[in-house]
Write a protein that binds this DNA or RNA. Structure first.
Lengths: 354, 354
DNA sequence: AGCCGCGCTGTTTGCGCAATCAAGCCTCGG
DNA sequence: CCGAGGCTTGATTGCGCAAACAGCGCGGCT
């Protein structure tokens, strides 16, 4: 086939062999920048050219080269996301929300797992910043000083997720873990539990704040006892829940309730009670955290704190997109709250009004 | 401070304001390509220059620009990963394995969620291919024809994960879901169950092959009955497990065992039995699939098929890295197998030797 | 009528890096 | 003693795109 009148590209040395903007422009008989505009901002190109360009793109199967775009515009269409864990299904739901929040917009997610390590967080952040991301999403509010400084100087929108607190880097979305911890403890006090244990694994900063909420309420009720708190820095798991429960029973055989730092632990306690033929809630009341789907189906169903994990991911992306567009979100600190779901595992005496 | 003898960069119009290779080269008193080599392939630069360059990198805080690198070398240090779901904790473990398999090598993961949709898979693949990834990892072996063709022409290593089968696109790592389905069914037949139900949600191709394994064994044993199979295309969940179990009880009140397509369903059945005061395994034997950590701790503990999810992710990356390095992995089709974990929920009469 | 300003399009340039080619230096063998 | 060949280093070029700036034509205004 004879070459048409458009420029014949010289593939002598390099090149991916794929059509470029210039190829499309040649075929459509326009300048390459017009093609660029037609793809990024169609409003600024006349309908006639737009159509010719679209036809040429189709014919050649042109796909933009994101590296070249990023290089030329000093801006990559990438949002960096740092989460501390993937073992935990909490964060996989956040990720799901993030991906869904993206819709079909051309942003890409660059995702990193810090394994709850400040060093790893800083290392990953350095890698991410090298890409000149359009925005960054980080978990929690307890960044190490150098990490925080890097985020402040990142030159792009930053969303801290999972938790809200004073002194945001830029934007924030989450809820108060302290208040959540208080709410659960208050509920168990209200239903008449006297010796309320606290089981916690991993004990990251958010876990510690939930513990602090528990401690506050327990002190107010005059029922705090350090022996009631059983924690480990090891990762959370169902079997760890059973293990911690047994440890707690040794230390404080008189406990009549356990607040678990998350639902995995609570499930472990449920199974442990089942094995030990302890009646729930008559002998042991159980409360969890996060309200995984299974809590409602469990037998007995387990009281838990519903946390807006998916919603946090979705809205974090929404906030980032608004900020990337150059506007300022209506609210830059968003408290999505939480909801105490009271179920059979804590239904003892007087159930409070709420 | 007076400017040193190195080139003073002209920042008149554009530029990110960040140090570049040329800046490092100027400070170290070498050519920019030498810096490039020192960073990518230190062996090829003399130790003395290497050290001067390292010092200059540190002083300037130089971070390479991956977009520029990708543009110049026509190859992005990105591995595209397509999984069908994030709701399912199976895939979050695969992802965890993938991230861990990466170590601190400079590859990035570009990750996409197909939501079990062939259209979405094709769309995401198109986006990924636009980035000229170094490798692609896709889930399953049932790609749509156009998707398969795109993968074959991708010009980079491709790893199909989760499942093995004939006719690989390039490399494969996983196990046989058909055999896994057979193994569970055979076990329940062996322990003397007569009316063995099958519960399945989502029913993606892998689920269907597990069902096929079940059906094969049941027919061989002369116990197959279509009424024993209860499935839905809705997503899997613990409550769905309870729901499917109730449906099965209505259709076939005489069932004495259920094989669940995954552990979420099995847990739902466990809770449903608990609520209905059905004895496990005396009245109902339960088997799950995947062997989530909680299966062992559950009360009673639940028989399940241990699948190498984390290992699949880790090894998929390892295979991809070998292929990216230009070598050929020792084996391009890797069967990691599975392991039937027999536990209390199916311990009835005669336990087979294995 | 002349001027301004706006809407649309094109030309040139450079983003930061690596491939290519070239050159200097050394070693070693004939 | 000289040339071949390996090792190290450097200058140039171009990857594909978007920013900056320029030009053109048209309509409305003074």
């Amino acid at each position: 086939m004879a070459s048409n009148d458009s420029e014949v590209r010289n593939r002598s040395r390099r090149g991916s062999g794929r059509p470029t903007l210039a190829d499309v422009a040649g075929l459509a008989g326009v300048g390459s920048i017009t093609v660029s505009r037609a793809l990024r901002d169609p409003e600024r190109v006349s309908p006639e050219l737009r159509q010719r360009i679209a036809a040429a793109v189709d014919e050649l199967g042109y796909v933009p080269n994101p590296s070249a775009r990023a290089l030329a515009s000093a801006r990559a269409d990438v949002i960096g996301v740092l989460v501390p864990s993937l073992t935990n299904n909490v964060f996989s739901e956040v990720l799901r929300g993030i991906h869904d929040g993206l819709g079909d917009c051309p942003l890409q997610i660059q995702f990193g797992n810090t394994h709850y390590s400040e060093q790893e967080e800083e290392r990953l952040l350095r890698v991410f910043l090298g890409q000149r991301p359009s925005a960054l999403i980080v978990s929690g509010i307890d960044q190490a000083p150098t990490t925080r400084q890097m985020l402040e100087e990142a030159g792009c929108p930053v969303v801290q997720i999972m938790e809200i607190g004073p002194d945001p880097i830029d934007m924030m979305i989450g809820f108060s873990h302290l208040e959540a911890g208080k709410a659960v403890a208050r509920h168990l006090v209200d239903v008449g539990c006297k010796r309320i244990g606290f089981l916690g694994a991993r004990m990251d900063p958010r876990s510690r704040r939930r513990l602090a909420g528990y401690e506050t309420v327990m002190r107010e009720a005059g029922r705090f006892d350090a022996a009631l708190v059983t924690t480990t820095i090891l990762p959370s798991s169902v079997s760890m829940g059973a293990g911690l429960f047994h440890k707690a029973l040794e230390k404080t055989p008189d406990i009549d309730a356990v607040i678990c730092n998350n639902d995995d632990l609570a499930l472990g306690v449920l199974f442990a009670c089942h094995r030990a033929s302890l009646k729930i809630p008559a002998q042991i009341a159980i409360a969890g955290f996060n309200d995984l789907e299974m809590m409602e189906v469990a037998s007995p169903s387990i009281t838990s704190v519903r946390t807006p994990r998916y919603e946090i991911g979705r809205r974090a992306i929404a906030m980032a997109r608004v900020a990337i567009a150059g506007e300022r979100p209506h609210r830059t600190i968003v408290d999505l709250g939480f909801e105490l779901k009271i179920r059979e595992s804590t239904m003892r005496a007087a159930i409070p009004a709420i």
